[in-house]
Design a protein around this nucleic acid. Sequence first.
DNA 1: AAAGCGGGGTT
DNA 2: AACCCAGCTTT
Length: 250
Amino acid sequence: MKRVKYRAAVDDDPLEGFREAVLGWYDQHGRNLPWRRTRDPYAIIVSEIMLHQTTVATVAPVYEEFMQRFPTVQALHEAALEEVKAITDPLGYKVRGRWLKDIARAVVEERGGIWPDSVEELMTLPGVGRYTAGAVASFALGIDAPILDTNVKRVLGRYFGIDYKNSRAETQHVLWALAEAVVPEGQASRFNQALMDFGAMLCTARKPLCLLCPARVHCQSGGVEAGQAAEAPFTYRLLPRDEESSDSAS
DNA sequence: AAAGCGGGGTT
DNA sequence: AACCCAGCTTT
């Protein structure tokens, strides 16, 4: 008796379909970046500070030089600020050198060389906001924390039909909620990386490759190119959560 | 909520 | 010329 070689996968769940599309695409096309070869919180946070509003191509050589010169948080702590800034200032946003020095001081002197182990604690470090904290938590600590950078905003905004460029607090709140909801359990590190590559390489700001997109069946952007109709419209809703007080949103 | 920070690349 | 880039802090 001949066995059926394939099993059917009916992609009628927009959220699970999105996860599978992004992860499947990432397996084939994901980038091999220097800061992905480590889980050292120090190396990860150095890369994330450098990547603030700065392209991967610009950061990569500077990151390599920085990590060679200051391989550990102790090495950075003992270095002169001027020597640090000589490497980081050419990236722009020249406060980054001081932030990294202040982070090193906080970890070495105030925390005995032990890194914060939660998003909330990470956010107390200078230059570390919610995005960077989520990145370090997921990439270095293995915590299922969401991230919401410019790539993820664009990808989720298009897929869920949200005006992601709107800076209103409520819009950003919804995007964060979706960024959290979409993370597959136990896979935040890989999935968050996948989301960013997906946004940087396929679902790009200027000319997204909608015809190659494995998630386009459900995408609420309807094809950014030529105003195509959404193939599979869907809606989402935000559920109240127990641990949050109900007066948070106005 | 809005401004300020910034060099470097793309359209 | 305008837009974009693994955002955060200050006003």
